[in-house]
């Protein structure tokens, strides 16, 4: 398992999916790191009951 973390993260080229603060993505981009910034909004329009249902149904 430790080898897997080394291979897939610590000693791999970092490629980031950024959810939340856009400044984190911008700073990574400036450093030449490949980043995809997600235009995130609360799932299910922020309805906790629906979000709970979704998590049970698995998306």
């Amino acid at each position: 398992m430790s080898d897997e973390i080394n291979e897939t993260l610590l000693n791999a080229d970092l490629k980031v999916v950024n959810l939340g603060l856009e400044s984190f993505a911008l700073e990574l981009t400036q450093q030449g790191v490949e980043v995809v910034h997600v235009d995130w909004t609360p799932p299910a329009g922020g309805d906790p009951a629906l979000a709970e249902l979704l998590s049970k149904l698995g998306v």
Partner: peptide, 10 residues
């Protein structure tokens, strides 16, 4: 179209 994805993403 997956109704789960519609609801999740809005």
């Amino acid at each position: 179209i997956d109704i789960r994805l519609v609801i999740e993403t809005g």
